[in-house]
Design a protein around this nucleic acid. Structure first.
Length: 275
DNA sequence: ACGAGGTCCTGCGAGC
DNA sequence: TGCTCGCAGGACCTCG
């Protein structure tokens, strides 16, 4: 599932192939993924649009056009973004949600099997408002441990749920929440506002470290995720807890436990190392 | 203000 | 073997 490192990887690979290109033709076989924009308006805005930048905000890929319009794509669970050199295979075409034919003949394709992903279209003002509703970027220099502590202050929500709340900080989903809490040695069910300054610092460091290491490995492929060139990520080989329920803890050797007690999401932890 | 739970969506694996 | 059922889960919604 694309979280911050996966979307960052996708965007870094797509940008050199897309920036400066003009969109010639748009096909939208699955318009139910659109949010706040009609198929006609998206087509009209994209067609003949020149791509000025491809960036990431939170877990979203942002395609900025010369007109100032931004198409924001959230891959969510099973979404992928790729540039194809030739016509799509039947398997790709089956799940294609949006296809943009470029002036060099290549195809930018948003593919999403489950279609929990979304596409929206924002003008400058809409983008400012959209971005303002999201929390700070955890890898930005402005995101200090003091900012992190402030974002968690006073809430009794489980710390795992809190760090996945995109209004508090962005980019952390289920995989990296599990990993960061293990790395920091913190029980995921602890009330967020009750963490000691030392625990907050450890978790802050763990979040930034795991995200940076995952970017260096081009993300985590457990099932569906592919990079912008179609390759699998490599961080699944570095995972310490996620998807490892029942297996031995890499730190103490005890059996890792999986629960669904926090927000109904799969949580894997070591009861010994995360007390 | 916050927490709990429902909704979207479809492939896959468990179980009978 | 072939079927049904429930799970995977990020963001957004409503209800209490």
């Amino acid at each position: 599932m694309p979280e911050l490192p996966e979307v960052e990887t996708i965007v870094r690979e797509l940008a050199p192939q897309l920036v400066g290109r003009t969109i010639r033709q748009v096909t939208l076989p699955r318009p139910d993924v659109l949010r706040g924009v009609t198929p006609a308006r998206l087509r009209r805005t994209l067609t003949r649009g020149r791509i000025r930048a491809v960036t990431r905000r939170a877990k979203h890929a942002v395609f900025e056009l010369a007109s100032g319009a931004r198409m924001v794509i959230q891959p969510r669970m099973t979404g992928s973004l790729m540039v194809h050199r030739r016509a799509l295979s039947p398997a790709d075409a089956r799940y294609a949600v949006l296809t943009c034919r470029l002036d060099n003949g290549r195809l930018l394709v948003f593919r999403d099997v489950r279609r929990l992903g979304t596409i929206s279209l924002l003008d400058r003002r809409g983008w400012t408002a959209y971005s303002a509703r999201l929390g700070p970027e955890p890898l930005d220099a402005a995101f200090t441990v003091a900012v992190f502590a402030d974002r968690l202050h006073g809430t009794r929500t489980a710390i795992k749920k809190a760090i996945m709340d995109q209004r508090r900080l962005v980019g952390v989903g289920n995989i990296y929440a599990n990993e960061a809490l293990f790395d920091a040695g913190i029980d995921p069910s602890r009330p967020a506002g009750r963490l000691s300054p030392d625990e907050l610092t450890r978790l802050y460091d763990a979040i930034r470290d795991v995200l940076a290491r995952a970017i260096a490995s081009s993300g985590t492929t457990v099932r569906d995720y592919r990079t912008g060139t179609g390759a699998a990520g490599r961080f699944q080989f570095e995972l310490r807890v996620y998807d490892r329920g029942g297996e031995p803890c890499r730190q103490c050797g005890r059996r890792l436990a999986t629960t669904h007690a926090i927000d109904g999401r799969q949580t894997t932890l070591c009861w010994w190392c995360q007390r």
